[in-house]
Design a protein around this nucleic acid. Structure first.
Length: 506
RNA sequence: GGCGCAUUGGUGUAGUUGGUUAACACGCUGCCCUCUCAAGGCAGAGAUCACGAGUUCGAGUCUCGUAUGCGCUACCA
């Protein structure tokens, strides 16, 4: 039987890292075994589901390159079907109507309420089959329902026995029925609940392997009971370890904000392949020590056996601009930026420049060779795509800022530079052709004549041309910036205006 | 409260059927390279493998207990 897996997020917020990782693993598994990867939006929680979330999820998957097969399924479209199935389980004697009035639960102390209730039940020696309506006479039940009395539908969990399954990651799992409550299938307002809906949709979609977060590991037993009540074949299960925040807590939108949103990584300059690679290594490892893996390698090497059982911590620190997200993710992004095929990087740089009004059509036309050269030169030290419009700005625009520390250290420190730099500009003006080698020769000769160290002129030039203290080899920069712009920038007195005169030093 | 799962340096992970100095990546420190910063090369710091007991000639690897963390326990998903 062909393998079919699915990713089934609920659209109650953006796609977070953990969910994205689940999607990735499902996708990799499907591609590895030549199966199908399906997508289903679990929008049965009408209160919290939004179209915007759905859009964000779709965008995120697209960004990661996780295309889905077959048509997108919205769980809410099947609500009526789920409702009818629950009702027919009553007929079959596998579920029953519970006329107990609905208990309102404040969202904030749900967990606490559960624990308290459990304690109270244990104290009274009550078991999970204690519902007074469980054995209510069918005629009586039908009559009260017909009279319009509201009821929830609960699954009749057998008194004896246990459910059992073999999880592809966590191994043998067993749970006695006594530990499972008669779970609610249908709310008293007729709304089908999660466990029923997932099971039915998974059956309908022909899902053979359910791969999802470990937070569903214990729910699985309940779902197996539903599969059995429905007379359906139980799929294989594989539960994935969770991805935790630095404080070891669950990743949450409310607590952690947008650092845990996948789209943040897109918007802050991550290369999709890099982030995908990083994500794949959270909770899974391939045999061998290679960690940088292309999509094809990922697909080829992915297996459920390599999935771990312990939760992984995803590091981030929004208040630290340099380590705002996981160091390894940042490193991997830089690694991709400097080593990926240039033609794959170019469109991303184009998008980044365009978004910052730095893009010119010539870069793809008359100046394409220059553009490629420039990108190839500066990419070596960049961490994110954002760097192309930030530190990279002087290469694409005349309007760039001078870094004050750089100016003080490399330019103002030596008063003679105010005359030396324009003089150097004069020398460079005559260099033909204007190559890295030629400019180097000219600069070194000029340094010797002027009896200053070449390094002084080099570092000063770097700051004059790029506004920065760091960057690529200076002679490469001369060549890429070009003679005309280099000369002009060397003659600019702007740093003195901007910083020195303000200090009253000049 | 009950049930389940996990626990290897700061983080992500390797550690074959128990067998010498616990491996790799990121991060960190130093050196080399050098016009700066990266990259690259080299070297280094950092783990009594959560803790306690047991089995064994020998345990990160097996058993039990404890602790901690996480998850589930809902007419949320």
């Amino acid at each position: 039987m062909p393998i079919r897996v699915r990713f089934a997020p609920s659209p109650t917020g953006y796609l977070h890292i953990g969910a994205a990782r689940s999607a990735l693993f499902n996708w990799l598994y499907a591609r590895h075994v030549g199966g199908k990867f399906l997508l289903r939006i679990e929008d049965t929680d009408i209160q919290r589901s939004t179209e915007e979330s759905t859009r964000s999820i779709l965008e995120g998957l697209e960004w990661l390159g996780l295309n889905y097969d077959e048509e997108l399924v919205f769980q809410s479209d099947n609500a009526e079907k789920h409702r009818r199935a629950a009702l027919s389980l009553i007929e079959a004697g596998k579920a029953y109507r519970d006329f107990t009035p609905k208990e309102e639960r404040a969202d904030a102390n749900v967990k606490q309420g559960i624990a308290e209730r459990a304690r109270a039940q244990a104290a009274e020696g009550q078991d999970q089959r204690g519902n007074p309506y469980r054995e209510l006479d069918m005629e009586e039940s039908n009559r009260r329902a017909a009279a319009g009395e509201p009821f929830a539908v609960r699954l009749k969990v057998p008194h004896e026995g246990k459910t059992h399954f073999t999880d592809a990651v966590y191994g043998e799992q067993e749970r006695t029925h006594a530990e499972i409550e008669d779970l609610v299938l249908l709310r008293s307002d007729g709304h089908p609940l999660y466990n029923l809906s997932v099971v039915m949709d998974d059956i309908e979609m022909g899902i053979t392997d359910v791969i999802r977060g470990q937070d569903h590991l214990t729910n699985t037993h309940k779902q197996i009971l539903i599969y059995e009540a429905l007379g359906a074949r139980v799929p294989r299960f594989a539960h994935l370890p969770l991805i935790l925040a630095p404080n070891k807590g669950k990743l949450s939108k409310r607590k952690h904000g947008e650092v845990v949103s996948l789209t943040t990584y897109r918007d802050r300059g991550f290369v999709p392949a890099a982030f995908r690679n990083f994500l794949a290594l959270l909770g899974w490892s391939a045999e061998g020590e290679q960690e940088i893996m292309s999509l094809d390698e990922l697909i080829e090497r992915f297996s459920l056996e390599g999935v771990h059982r312990s939760n992984a911590i995803f590091n981030f620190n929004e208040s630290d601009p340099r380590h705002w997200t996981d160091d390894k993710a940042l490193w991997m992004n830089a690694e991709y930026i400097r080593t990926m095929p240039l033609e794959e990087l170019l469109p991303m740089v184009k998008a980044e420049l365009r978004a910052n009004k730095l893009w010119r059509e010539e870069y793809e036309d008359d100046e394409s060779a220059w553009f490629e050269r420039a990108v190839d030169l500066i990419r070596q030290r960049f961490f994110t795509l954002k760097d192309f419009s930030a530190q990279g700005r002087p290469y694409f625009s005349e309007d760039f800022d001078f870094d004050e520390a750089a100016v003080r250290k490399n330019v103002l420190k030596e008063p003679r530079l105010k005359e030396l730099l324009p003089a150097l500009a004069g020398r460079l003006e005559g260099v033909e052709p204007f190559t890295a080698q030629a400019s180097e020769a000219a600069l070194r000769a000029f340094a010797e004549e002027s009896e200053v160290k070449a390094g002084l002129l080099i570092n000063a030039s770097r700051t004059m041309l790029t506004g920065q203290a760091v960057g690529p080899s200076m002679f490469e920069v001369f060549e890429v910036i070009g003679r005309e712009r280099s000369v002009r920038r060397l003659r600019s007195q702007q740093p003195w205006f901007e910083f020195a005169e303000r200090d009253g030093k000049v």
